[in-house]
Nucleic acid binder design. Structure first.
Lengths: 98, 98
DNA sequence: TGCAAATTTAACAAAATTTTAATAACAACA
DNA sequence: TGTTGTTATTAAAATTTTGTTAAATTTGCA
């Protein structure tokens, strides 16, 4: 095997994606969506006891990095996990380090 | 199941751990160690073409978050992954999002 | 001891994120 | 249209992370 070249592009993309989930509230959001499926913004921020704007902000970050998807239904926007494996991964990273 | 309570402590810990690997150079370091096993600081910074101090800094961050372990042998300090599953996780997070 | 190699720390400006508050935009409906 | 319920955007300040450079440690050995 040849000496693998550093692909800065891929590294940056991976880091950027990881940064998007490396935040306590965003991890909490992922956990919520994992157990509840689609949720609208209001139920998310009420459940997490954070400001509406903050929730919207975090949701947008997660969506822009491809972690979440959203679909508008009337007044509500429902968010949901794009890859359900994610919370398993988080759990693992968590457990792996005691 | 009862409405799961938010455990800020755990969330912060998980986020902190994730932040430690959410950096392009640190992901590169993890990749290197995954394929090479134990490495000393010099071979790491030469391979990644970064300053020695920068490498040491990143290594310390990863170690302090429990991602790496280190063992001194004479003048050298050898670093190695504490959990080899990590790079698999990184790969997955990467692939999961195209 | 004195020097060189390898690594760690410290310090600090620059850049990126978070937080917070206020405001704007959108959708449904009387 | 005007009002209300939902969600999104913006802006500014506060906080964290980076990136760099220089100085300090630690170890082996002449």
């Amino acid at each position: 095997m040849a000496k693998t070249q550093l692909d800065m592009h891929k590294l940056d993309a991976a880091a950027s994606r990881l940064r998007s989930i490396a935040h306590p509230m965003r991890i909490a959001i992922i956990g919520l969506l994992e157990s509840n499926g689609k949720m609208n913004v209001t139920s998310i921020y009420e459940r997490l006891k954070i400001e509406q704007a903050a929730a919207s902000h975090h949701l947008n970050i997660l969506k822009s990095k491809g972690i979440l998807e959203s679909k508008r239904d009337g007044k509500n926007t429902f968010y949901y996990l794009k890859h359900s494996a994610l919370s398993t991964i988080l759990e693992c990273i968590n457990k792996c380090n005691d």
